[in-house]
Each structure stands twice: as C-alpha cells, then as structure tokens.
Write a protein that binds this DNA or RNA. Sequence first.
DNA 1: TCTGGGGTCCTTAGCCGG
DNA 2: TCTGCCGGCTAAGGACCC
Length: 516
Amino acid sequence: MRSAPTILHLDMDAFFAAAEQAAKPSLRGKPVVVGGLGPRGVVATASYEARRFGVHSAMPMAQARRLAPNAAYLVPRFSFYRSISEQVMRLLGALSPLVEPLSLDEAFVDLEAGGAARDAATARAVGERLRADIAAVTGLTGSVGLAASKMIAKVASERAKPDGLLLIEPGTERALLGPLSVRTIPGVGPATGEHLRRAGITTCAELVEAGEDELVRLLGRAQGVSLHRMALGHDDRPVVAERDMKSVSVEDTFDTDLHDRLRIRLEVERLADRCVRRLRSSGHSGRTIVLKVRRYDFSTLTRSETLRGPTDDPVVVREAAARLLEGVDTTGGVRLLGVGVSGLADWTQEDLFAQAAGLIAGAARGPAPDGATGTDTGHPPEQGRPPGAVPDLRDGPGPGAVRQWSPGQDVRHAEHGPGWVQGSGVGRVTVRFEVPRGEIGRVRTFRVDDPELTPSEPLPLVAAPEPPELVSPEQPEQPEQPEQPEPPEGQPSSPATEPKERSGAAGSGGADSSIP
DNA sequence: TCTGGGGTCCTTAGCCGG
DNA sequence: TCTGCCGGCTAAGGACCC
C-alpha cells in the first residue's frame, strides 16, 4: 500500500436529484425523488430534502410517496445525467490517466500516476480545486475522499457528504474503521452483515479480532481473506482505467404479472432483440445466452445455454432464449423477464461475414448448443441474411399510440418556449416553463395531443462557457426558430442558455479545466 | 405498499477428459 | 482395465454494488 493519500474518490451528491433541481428552478430546496414511477418502481435517488422524510434509494416508490407525498416525483433522464457525467469525467481525466469510473456519479483517480499530487498537502489542494471546477462546470456539488487506498478513500468521501472533502492520513485507517459497522466494508451487504451479526461480529474491530481463519470458516475462502485484510485497512486494489465488458443484459419488470404463455414468449423475444441491439452497438458477440425469470412470489431463476461459438445474430439469441423458456414453469405468473449474453468476444457479425468471404466455409461456428442434449437444435444457415439486417427490432410503442408525457420530461412549446412536464392525466398535460439558472417559471396546462407541444432535449445546466474575450465572429448566435419563442411577460428569456443547441453541452469541453 | 435495471464476482455441483 | 485425482467447463444461484 502506498504511503501518501493520493487515491481520490469522487462521489456526486444526490446526483440525479441534484441535476433535476439544477435544471428546474422551481424544485430548488424542495424534496425531489427520481425513479421508476410505475406501480413497481423504486427510488433511484432522493434529494437531501426528501431524505429528511426517510426516503432513500432502492425504496419502493409507493412507500416513498407515503413518506413524502408532496415531493416532486420524476422519471430518470439518463442521457442528461450522462452528459453531465462526461463533463465531470473530463475534469478527472485532466488530473490523471488512471481514472476508474464506477458509475455516472462516482470514480476513483490515482493522483500519483498523473503526477498531480505526491503528498497530503498537494492531494488536498487538488481535491479542493476539483470540487470548485465541478461546481463551475456543472453547477453541482461533489464530495471528495482522499486516502492511501480505494476503500478508505470511499469511506472518506461518504463521511465528507454532502459537499465536503475528507483526507485520511495513512496510518490512521485502522483506528478510523475500528468502531464502524462491518457494512462499511465493500462486499458486505445485508446477507453477509446478518451472517456476521449472528456470529457476534458487528464492527470492523470485531472482524480483526475474529481473525482470518474464523472469517474463512464463516464466509468461505475468498470473502474471508479479503474481509480480514480490509478490516485492517489493507487494500491493494489498483485504480483500473479500463475494464473489459463481461456481459450484456436487458430486463423488464411488468406492471402486472404475466400469465399468458404466448405473451411471455413474445416478451422474451422482444428482450432478446433489445439485448442483441445493445450487444452489437458495443461491438461484441457472445457465446452464452441467459434467460432470467422472476416469478410472482419474487423467486428468481436463470437458465443458460452455451453455443459452440459467439454470435450477435438476433435470430439465434431469440431462439436460444425461447428454448430456455420451454424449460421454465411459469404457472402463477411472472413479474420480470430478462435476456442476457455473456462470454463476450470482440467481433461482430460484420467481421464474420468479411471473414467467411475469404475463408474456409463451415469453420467452427455453427452456433448450435453444446452437444449434451442431442435434441434438434440446428439453426438455419446464416448466409441468406444480409449482415446487419436485424429483422424486426422495433421497440417501444408503435405509431399511432397516444402520446405519453412523463413527469420531468423536457418539452418545448411553440409559443411558450422550453419547459418540463410536471404531470399529466385525463387527456391533459401540465408544463412548467422555466430554464436552468432562470427564475421559477409559470405553469400551463394543454391537451396531451396539443400539436404546439413537442418533446425536446435537455438544456445545459451551465451556459456553455464562451471564451471570455474571444467571441468567435463566424459563429453568431442563431436561434433555430424564426418566430421568437418569447416567454410570457415577467420571465427573463435567459438568452445565455435558451437557444443553445444541444451539441453545445458536449462541445463545451474545451474550456473545462480552465475555470478559475 | 412491497421489492428496478445493469452489471460483477463467488460458490457449489456435475460432467468430462487426461 | 479400473480407480482416483485434478483441472476445466458449464450451469445455477446468491450476494453485492451503484
């Protein structure tokens, strides 16, 4: 383990909810809950205001609504969060080549590898400047932990929350961890925590006291050894910049349980198609097809089948998933279905066809399942289908469906300009017209099929930084709409943010690390 | 009122070939 | 030829993380 606290952990504060509050002035200081709004949704993120009511992530939405009936409930807008995350990750990338993103809102940075810091004083300075840069570039706050190892840096950022920085001096780790719950240690969840509690172990100090042998006896080799080391504050895991993807999967929970066998089969095929689309867009193929079924009673089972060679063919995946479904009893109903592909390889259908054109026909790639069963599992030869022509991969509602407006969704009205959906029902949709950094906007209600109202892209949280003195003459501001989308009286039109094209958000990267 | 979605890793068990 | 052992692979489930 290193001797200086040069591993940095960044954790954005209540990220999704904070991003929504920044984008929607009327939500600032109010409880905001982001998550699935269906009958079986759960909370993804709750703002600090909502947490005061006891709402937290992973809580069923219905329970959250009972605890905080007056909070704003919004669906997640992942592409919006991703664009903010990219800005943050660029700031981290400027500090070191070794950045390990854990999710959209969290990452480790090895400051030593980047030469950004080599002792406590420089590390702290880097951390503080990072927090200031993040605030300037995104308008959001993040908490920073600094330590000599990943685990302790993460513990530090957690304790620094919200909007803080904490540095743990090397040598003090064991004292810090001692009184903390075993749940502090990564890898100890509800089940392991309960297992340990029954053995009389609730704190990290007690983990150390129990000794490695006892922990191995209780939890098995891998977990026992690692837990004992972690409890001592020993964590040698390096910051890893790139990780190979190991699997791709999609799953859907249905609002009500599915009973009809035919419908279940159709859903599995739909999921298989979606999964293949994701697989292909990541440039992979895969060998093992996995079907996941969660039954009415929440019991979950998986069935898998390994092909002779990797595939990214939707027909092959669909058929494999359907075969797996044959072996599953669905009486009683299913609440969730999922299809995944693992055993990934780095090539796609296109590569294969290119290869097949010049190589031995019939080389090791009949994607038939492994011989064991000997049932009829032959697949039609694939030569007939053009590469890339994925048949019938539609998704979502078909054309002609009634327009759906989700709470939180960005919209634009021909007359009133940009806004967001506050709610909808009984043929009406309520929109609040306001923009990031603007004033609290007005609310108006329209018919759901009002032609003047269209879905739109998120506006950037912070005005795309114009180079201070260098207002480029060849790029004048060009509002797209000839008829000015003037907000109603009393509302600042906020020209800095309003007419920016959406590419402006991504293009703002040039100035990122130069914020004072 | 129940309990999302997308991943990773570990454990156990059975099978197979050397 | 039979038996035991071992490693590798596959399948299934569980725990955990954000």
